[in-house]
Design a protein around this nucleic acid. Structure first.
Lengths: 232, 232
DNA sequence: ACAAAAGTGTTGAAACTACACCCATGC
DNA sequence: GCATGGGTGTAGTTTCAACACTTTTGT
């Protein structure tokens, strides 16, 4: 077996871009760093890959540590490995894209990490190449949400169609026709009427739906072709 | 500045999945290994990331070395980092997805690397997790070619519409209606009539087109919504 | 009773599918 | 002249976009 020189070895970091939706705005979970390097500046949540874990396990560990949640929607977004991206030793960063339901996350844990939910449009400048990563993640969110039903990952277990519409309007930053949206969505047969109404509304109470998980898994890889023209 | 323990460091490999099209079949450029480990077995073309290069530079180097080509269509596909994927030292592999024009590649150089163009359907089993990578790449090709005009990357500078159709039929493994295909394609205004005809044809000679590169770049990120239903 | 948000139906336009005929070429 | 493959047109269907009125609820 050939041995390769250790000079080729690099650190592998994991960075997580974490999206949430509060019913009105898309948000990112960002960390105000308390440690060097770049103490006091904003960054994505991240860490190093441990020797005993796979990449996806590392991402799950970091997400669980921060939010208390397991079973988070999470996928690889990209890898960044510019030779000069980290001033210390050479580092390759695997960037993960995560969607979480804000109200299910552990707010204490978030606070303990000095992390904050920040409106996408009001996000501060981030360290290193994290700004670029976020731009790519927003693109990816728009791309993917147009084709696959991932929006549900940002809403709670039960939700109303108007809530879903507000989410899509936030993602694409366009107004959507209520009637066409509702019809298209119901025609997917991904929604199950819970029979309940959203009691928080101050006017007419909207129907609460939940996701048909069986159909969701069946249909996930089919093209949804939803909002595709908002991306042109 | 904090120092991290070198025990966290890993090797970074680059593996390239290289697609080509010979006018009839989709092909992969695969290597019959002459070196340990796994000598004599088939694998993707790959190598280690050098200390002085970015990830994309590494992929370009490997592709140029093998095919003699620069300016290859190439994008990151995924990263594989299972803790036990490589029996030697821990390795994270960045997998690139490349589309090349077979007839423009340097066949001498390919031969010198003991590499061969192999029909997709007749590919041998590959080492490590390369089989899984190829499956993901085929999925990605179908996904991406349905939405973006990447098919041209597999054809030579000038091409006919029937050639393009054969390519799409090979990608999706479905028959396509000639008339509808042609109409849809011409309506993209991505094609420029060269005024020439395909002299290789033995019957009626098809019109040779070339790509309108300006429009191609403008429209690349627009959804093409082409072949979307072949993926359902 | 009125303001605010939810629910639903129709119509015209555009896109897509399916299908058939004519043309150019080499043998 | 015939077999092979290239080029084009049309009609029916389906999908999508645009748009207005009615219902529920809290005040």
């Amino acid at each position: 077996m050939v041995r390769y020189p250790d000079s080729l070895k690099v650190f592998v970091a994991i960075d997580c871009i974490i999206f949430g939706f509060d019913g009105k705005d898309l948000k990112l979970l960002l960390v105000k760093r308390k440690l060097e390097p770049e103490s006091g500046n904003w960054s994505l949540m991240g860490g190093f890959l441990f020797p005993n874990e796979d990449l996806e396990e590392g991402a799950s560990r970091i997400l669980k540590d921060l939010t208390g949640l397991t079973n988070i929607y999470c996928e690889q977004l990209t890898v960044k490995g510019e030779k000069n991206r980290d001033p210390g030793s050479r580092t390759v960063s695997v960037v993960f894209f995560a969607l979480i339901k804000i109200e299910e996350s552990d707010q204490e844990s978030v606070k303990n990490h000095n992390a904050f939910w920040i409106e996408l449009d009001k996000r501060p400048s981030l360290i290193f190449d994290h700004n670029q990563m976020v731009l790519e993640a927003i693109d990816h969110l728009r791309y993917k949400a147009a084709l696959h039903p991932i929006g549900f990952e940002l809403l709670s277990e039960t939700f109303t169609i108007p809530q879903l519409q507000k989410l899509y309007e936030a993602i694409y930053n366009v107004p959507i026709d209520r009637r066409n949206f509702s019809r298209k969505l119901l025609s997917t047969s991904l929604l199950i009427d819970t029979g309940m109404k959203n009691i928080h509304s101050t006017t007419k109470k909207a129907t609460l739906y939940r996701l048909d998980k069986v159909r969701y898994n069946e249909k996930f890889h089919a093209f949804w072709n939803f909002m595709a023209d908002a991306m042109k």
